[in-house]
């Protein structure tokens, strides 16, 4: 088979091992070259990348409109915050616990609504996200601290030997999490599960008629997406040392949605670009903060008109060849 020619724009971004190595060096060297302020920007870039990856499973791979993803993020963050401050459980142990809590929540909430299609599902997930946020504000069982949230969350540590307490260490923590997620997700994309997800996105009825258990794979996507969002919540909570409901508003869900749409549905490099756009541009355009939303909105419209598939849509070819 002759190799297909890759035209213009795509040629620049064609993913190759060398590019990957270059990115690795760039991301590794970055925090040593800049001030703490910029390292923190890099950290939040990582958080948004992880959140984007988690929503990309649900929205990008399976095509389920989930506008309540901040709810899962909140569950992860609050699980960490509450169990750490009340019971003193170390953050690292809470990492899988938060992921499980968010996954379990997703399983319970999504089971009854998973058969809904398109915009109906979208509206229910918006409601789900808002219910989580309002529940946190209402301070159930005196656990969540109401609008003030929970304070005094520890640094992640293993005993006293290995403590993550500086910007640079947090930066590496989040990017290791992102790298592991990318590793796992890119393998899933090339597997039977990834194909089943894509089939459901393309044509649900045909997917059913080809032996794909649509309900199971949709739920799996939600559970996995929520678990990753829970991991992001855990790292976020320990970085900020406090969590409050205002970090998990509908706006956060919208940002995650934009990350996936800007980058290209179901495309992992696309998610990274989308996360960069969402987290870095506001910093670059800080002097024009007043016009930020205007520019952002305009950019979204232009994108939808000229590149509706996203900046870096997933290219399909023969797997493994």
């Amino acid at each position: 088979m002759q190799v297909k020619k890759i035209a213009g724009f795509d040629r620049i971004f064609y993913f190759r091992k060398k590019t990957f190595l270059g990115l690795l060096i760039l991301f590794g060297a970055y925090p040593f070259l800049v001030s703490n302020y910029y390292i923190d920007i890099g950290f939040f870039f990582g958080i948004y990348a992880l959140l984007g990856l988690s929503l990309n499973i649900v929205l990008g791979e399976v095509g389920l409109f989930d506008l309540g993803h901040a709810g899962f993020y909140a569950i992860g963050a609050y699980t960490t915050a509450i169990l750490n401050t009340k019971c003193g459980i170390p953050i690292f142990i809470l990492l899988p616990v938060s992921a499980l809590a968010a996954a379990l929540f997703a399983y319970m909430v999504c089971s009854p609504i998973i058969h809904l299609r398109g915009d109906y599902l979208c509206i229910v997930t918006i409601g789900m996200g808002e219910i989580v946020r309002l529940a946190l504000i209402n301070n159930p069982l005196d656990l969540t601290g109401g609008p003030n949230g929970v304070f005094g969350i520890d640094f992640p540590s293993v005993g006293n030997i290995f403590v993550i307490d500086s910007s640079i260490e947090y930066y590496f923590l989040i990017w290791v999490a992102v790298a592991l997620s990318i590793y796992g997700l890119s393998r899933l994309q090339q597997s039977r599960i990834g194909r089943a997800w894509n089939c459901i996105r393309e044509d649900e009825v045909a997917a059913k008629a080809n032996g794909i258990d649509v309900r199971y794979y949709k739920l799996l996507a939600f559970v996995l997406g929520a678990a990753l969002a829970g991991v992001a919540g855990n790292i976020y909570a320990s970085k900020l040392m406090c969590v409050s409901p205002e970090s998990f508003t509908f706006w956060e869900s919208c940002l995650m949605f934009c990350i996936v749409l800007i980058g290209g549905m179901g495309s992992i490099p696309g998610v990274l670009i989308g996360a960069a756009a969402i987290s870095l541009f506001p910093e670059i355009f800080r002097p024009f903060a007043m016009y930020r939303m205007l520019v952002f909105g305009g950019a979204m419209i232009l994108m939808m008109v000229f590149r509706p598939g996203g900046i870096w849509p997933r290219k399909r070819g023969i797997s493994g060849k």
Binding site: L188, A196, N198, A206, L220, R316, S319
Partner: peptide
């Protein structure tokens, strides 16, 4: 009713889905 954004081979591979059993962890 095909899966339009997937390759022809991937479309046919979807047919084999029910004859395979790899789960989440073995795929990762």
């Amino acid at each position: 009713r095909l899966f339009p954004e997937m390759t022809c081979l991937e479309n046919v591979m979807a047919g084999q889905h029910c004859r395979a059993s790899a789960g989440l962890w073995s795929s990762i």
